[in-house]
């Protein structure tokens, strides 16, 4: 049973990091394109980028917390 829980914890964090990973990559790429196109707006773009990255990051963090929860039950 504990083996299954361990696998579940691993899967939780692994799967939860796939989507945000892709999303953050896309967002960062677009932000860099925008900065390259409009270097004078770099500050605003960076703020918006960090905010959106934080929202995506939250999804992974939820997976990580689930992993911690499961880990405590081993």
């Amino acid at each position: 049973m504990s083996g299954i829980i361990a696998i579940a914890a691993a899967l939780a964090v692994a799967i939860a990091s796939i989507g945000p990973g892709i999303g953050q990559g896309l967002a960062a790429g677009k932000a860099m394109e925008s900065i390259a196109r409009q270097p004078e707006a770099a500050g605003e773009i960076r703020t918006a980028l960090i905010l959106s990255l934080a929202f995506m990051e939250a999804l992974t963090i939820y997976g990580l917390l689930i992993a911690f929860l499961l880990y405590g039950k081993i």
């Binding site: 934080a54 990051e57 939250a58 963090i61 939820y62 990580l64 917390l65 911690f68």
Partner: peptide, 13 residues
């Protein structure tokens, strides 16, 4: 909820 979990998860992780 997301505000607290994000901060906690990041620092704790």
């Amino acid at each position: 909820l997301s505000l607290s979990l994000r901060l906690y998860g990041n620092v704790f992780g």
